[in-house]
């Protein structure tokens, strides 16, 4: 180290050692490390040195500069009185990270999807615009069958063979085209009914339908599987009853009811004083439909079920107007996430 730099170092370190307060430290920094400080001056003077010394002295000056910067930082910490600096106010509320949300129906359908997957059901996705065959005839609802009445259908101008699917039972025929039994399939999707909307009726809503086909599928499997699903979904033992019902594409056909969540079965406005809430329609796939699936009813049997997602979500999340799902109101959309 050239003598002048060496000297500068001793002087600087001595001066730093004498520093006892933050303002003094600031003055020290200014005097030695500032733009017009002694180190800068030393570095500027390197240019005037002989060629042979320049690099050596320059490097030494730079090294000293680094050393002093480190020493100043150390001194600064030394001078900082423990805990005396005002702490940040830790009582202020957090800054929430920007976050979006998934639609309550999306969340609800995912919950259901996960349960069906865990029970070995795979997924299918069919079109919303369906032909008469998939929506009606193939499901044992021939033209002019009175059952076409209860499903108020949207027809299209200029496309007489198509309808907006009125139910997602279409999956029974469509899924069977993709695979051979045994299989377990479920589909979630939108369905459409020509119906005036109110707090409990929608014209476009979601349904979930599934089916299981195997060699010896029984009514008891249907009841057991659907009960297990509902009890997993609601995470508790449920009071469930099975009620015979008619659907053209199943035989026998039945509805599953759950004791009303709201009144515990006592009867209230939501369950129409019945004490029971209808959860889903179901049944053993009709032999005609099995044949339309190109399966021999003598060998194969199966059950199918369908449920309205929007309605079930109302019970799950406990809101009273089905139209909230389509409201686009963030106060609804953001909840449940």
């Amino acid at each position: 180290m050239p003598p002048s730099i060496e000297q500068l170092k001793r002087e600087a370190l001595a001066a730093l050692a004498a520093v006892q307060s933050p303002p003094a430290l600031e003055a020290f920094e200014h005097r030695y490390l500032g733009r017009k400080g002694k180190i800068s001056a030393a570095l500027r003077s390197v240019g005037q040195l002989a060629e042979a010394d320049r690099q050596r002295v320059g490097a030494a000056a730079n090294a000293l500069r680094q050393e002093l910067i480190a020493a100043v930082e150390e001194k600064r910490e030394e001078l900082a009185p423990d805990g005396a600096a005002p702490r940040d106010d830790v009582t202020v509320p957090g800054l929430p990270p920007r976050r979006g949300s998934l639609h309550p129906l999306t969340l609800f359908m995912r919950t259901m999807e996960d349960i069906w997957r865990s029970m070995g059901f795979s997924f299918h996705q069919g079109p919303d615009l369906e032909t008469d065959w998939y929506n009606f005839s193939g499901l044992n609802i021939p033209p002019h069958h009175p059952a076409r009445d209860i499903q108020d259908t949207f027809y299209l101008k200029g496309h007489p063979k198509h309808v907006l699917r009125t139910h997602i039972s279409t999956v029974q025929l469509r899924a069977a085209e993709r695979q051979s039994p045994p299989f377990r399939v479920v589909e979630f999707g939108r369905v459409y009914r020509h119906e005036a909307t109110d707090a409990s009726h929608e014209a476009a809503y979601f349904e979930c339908e599934g089916l299981a086909v195997d060699r010896h599928v029984r009514v008891t499997d249907l009841i057991g599987t659907l009960t297990t699903f509902l009890e997993t979904l609601f995470d508790r033992k449920l009071q469930i009853r099975v009620r015979p019902h008619y659907y053209p594409f199943v035989e026998p056909g039945m509805d599953l009811d759950m004791a009303c969540f709201f009144c515990g079965g006592q009867g209230c406005g939501i369950c129409g004083q019945a004490g029971w809430l209808e959860m889903m329609g179901s049944g053993m796939i009709h032999p005609k439909v099995l044949r339309h699936m190109k399966l021999d009813p003598a060998t194969w049997s199966g059950f199918a079920w369908g449920m309205g997602v929007d309605r079930l979500a109302m019970f799950y999340y406990r809101y009273a107007d089905i139209r909230l799902a389509h409201s686009g109101d963030l106060r609804f959309l953001e909840q449940f996430n």
């Binding site: 070995g120 045994p182 377990r184 299981a212 195997d214 060699r215 010896h216 599928v217 029984r218 009514v219 008891t220 499997d221 009841i223 057991g224 599987t225 009960t227 297990t228 009853r241 099975v242 009620r243 015979p244 039945m254």
Partner: peptide
């Protein structure tokens, strides 16, 4: 039907 046992799919 409510007297039936509940079973799960065997296949």
């Amino acid at each position: 039907y409510n007297t039936f046992p509940k079973t799960l799919l065997a296949g």
